[in-house]
Write a protein that binds this DNA or RNA. Structure first.
Length: 318
DNA sequence: AAGCATAGCAACCGCAACAAT
DNA sequence: CATTGTTGCGGTTGCTATGCT
């Protein structure tokens, strides 16, 4: 039972396409168009699944495709749109002429995600890791913070180390620190890798403690200050010329809801309703928030998180 | 020079949305 | 309105090229 297959699997070829197959598909489509992908391989004399033909055409053979490197401008658009739309690659690709969703997705996964991480920005939420940690600490009760921090550090250790290093915070051990009280106390099968992880996490803990001491709450994250994850030589802005995250200020008191919930509408976690509210120019309370301002489309519930010139958009966002 | 690790890219798979009947 | 077929999308895998030890 179940769904019928899109083609007879046993008589269908898989894997890399040959130039001959490409030629057959291209010439067939140039004559007959792309109506009914199921019939195209049969009529074009190809031992391929219709789905495979469609993919090959849309991702590689289409004459309007660009095949070269992504430009800085294209990268900026991807990062900006990803911060609002999340992994909606087709919508993002629609703003980049000649690029496919597969191209954009691959470029994100292989380059941009790492680039952002290297800048100390979480590629999922597009918020600096330091913000995330501070927001967690602000939101949770102390015992929860401790548990969550322990778990989070394991996942984010590389990015955290990078961030602390960039901030010139000494993360070397000065005296042997006591081993963290983790659940992993199996004394016989501790691999070298696990020891290294424990060391790394311990270093991060120390670095974070020093970071907190070095930066009083009054001096951090004020919008007029230099962005906290920018290196002193401005390397981050050099990576994305003209790219700018206008950070929301840290609201500790006197604001409705946590800073976390207020600024969450920036990535894949954003609900469709929230995105729509953003696009419609209202925030969750119905107050005017985003929309078009001075010829620039403003996104996100914070109004400031990022902005994009409206003529940058090739196609209306769905 | 050989072996291994990593990055980049092309392609596949399963699911969901949409259209036609 | 229900069913069936088609298309589109996003996640994932696997292959190849390149770099490193």
């Amino acid at each position: 039972m179940g769904r019928i297959p899109c083609c007879e699997k046993e008589s269908v070829k898989k894997g890399q396409w040959t130039p001959e197959e490409d030629h057959k598909l291209s010439s067939y489509i140039s004559q007959h168009g792309t109506r009914n992908w199921r019939l195209i391989p049969k009529n074009a004399g190809l031992q391929r699944c219709g789905k495979s033909c469609r993919l090959r055409w849309t991702n590689y053979l289409r004459p309007d495709l660009k095949h070269g490197q992504f430009s800085d401008a294209e990268e900026q658009i991807i990062v900006r749109l990803h911060s609002v739309l999340g992994n909606r690659w087709s919508v993002i690709a629609a703003q980049l002429p000649g690029r496919t969703d597969n191209d954009v997705k691959n470029h994100w996964n292989t380059k941009l995600r790492k680039k952002l991480s290297g800048m100390g920005i979480d590629p999922v939420t597009h918020k600096p890791y330091s913000h995330l940690m501070a927001e967690i600490a602000n939101t949770l009760a102390p015992p929860q913070v401790a548990n969550l921090a322990e778990a989070t550090l394991g996942c984010l250790k590389d990015e955290m180390l990078h961030l602390l290093t960039k901030k010139h915070i000494d993360i070397q051990f000065q005296s042997p620190a006591p081993a963290p009280a983790t659940v992993n106390n199996n004394n016989n099968n501790n691999s070298k890798h696990e020891e290294h992880d424990d060391d790394t996490i311990e270093k991060i803990k120390i670095g974070l403690s020093r970071a907190i001491i070095q930066e009083s709450p009054e001096t951090r994250m004020t919008p007029s200050n230099k962005l906290p994850w920018e290196s002193s030589n401005g390397a981050s802005s050099a990576n994305f010329p003209g790219f700018h995250y206008a950070l929301p200020s840290f609201g500790h008191e006197g604001e409705g809801g946590s800073p976390w919930s207020q600024s969450m509408c920036t990535g894949s976690t954003c609900t469709a309703g929230e995105q729509l509210q953003s696009k419609m120019g209202v925030d969750e309370n119905g107050d005017e928030c985003s929309g078009e301002k001075d010829g620039r489309i403003m996104f996100s519930g914070e109004c400031e998180l990022w902005d994009l010139p409206s003529n940058d958009l090739m196609n209306p966002l769905v």
